[in-house]
Design a protein around this nucleic acid. Sequence first.
DNA 1: ATGTCAGCCGGAGGCTGA
Length: 291
Amino acid sequence: MIPTKKQLDARLSGNTKFCIAAAMTTIATWNVNSVKARLSNVLAWLESNPVDILLLQELKCETDAFPAMEFEDRGYNLAIHGQKTYNGVAICSKFPLEDVMRGLPEISSRLRGEEVDAQARYIEALVNIPNGVLRVASAYIPNGQEVGSDKFLYKLNFLDRLYAHWQERLAWNEMAVLGGDFNVAPEAIDVHDPKAWEGNILFHPEERARLRALLHLGLYDAFRVKHPTTQQFSWWDYRGGGYERGIGARIDHLLLSGIAVDKLSDVAIDESPRGQEKPSDHAPVVCTITL
DNA sequence: ATGTCAGCCGGAGGCTGA
């Protein structure tokens, strides 16, 4: 049984107390839909939620245009993979980052480790957290636009590449978190109206099969592990007043390796930023790992 | 299916992607 912080504080003092407190690592994922348009929202959220690691998606800016100073001033080290106008992913970490990898390998060129994809949708790094090492990735899976379109095939191919890559990564038996906007709701409970959504993008059988395949490799959907029967969404369409009408889906996920999920103490989707002025259409998902 | 939003080009509003 993991002792509560109060119990630890009662037992410990001085520097030891600090070390134990620091062994909690909080990780969040958030599709911000333009880091520049959302800067004040994100900084305000970090003010009250000073997470250790923040995985961002949909930066919508080039790497050099990322507002790095605002994050560095708040103690974050940055690994950014941006591009003009579209996509873009980043890892913000209060702990040092190493071995940054930008982009997923193409399946056809895996042996050479070549990166051909022009879309900035994946970044991975090793984080030196207190008392250990954690691999994290920020992924922005393609939306797919319409079933049967080229973009839908690209989405399925991207999920296949993610599978192939994590099949290799999980063989390393690391503590790892693959977070991001997957643009896939895993189960019927994860959409507001499964009958209406069945067969559409975000809830198509082929996408869901690929997400399940990822889980079958040995990744665990942190939210569902801690909240087996809760319906809560992480995204609501701007169109049609989706948030006000409760029409949404849970498509943003923190997938944890077995070693990480064994240390998982808490997971929550924070809806509050979605109800504020000029929000992202996504809400952040946050988890806490205790070492 | 769509009651919205962001960025681009270019200098207004239509287009793309979500």
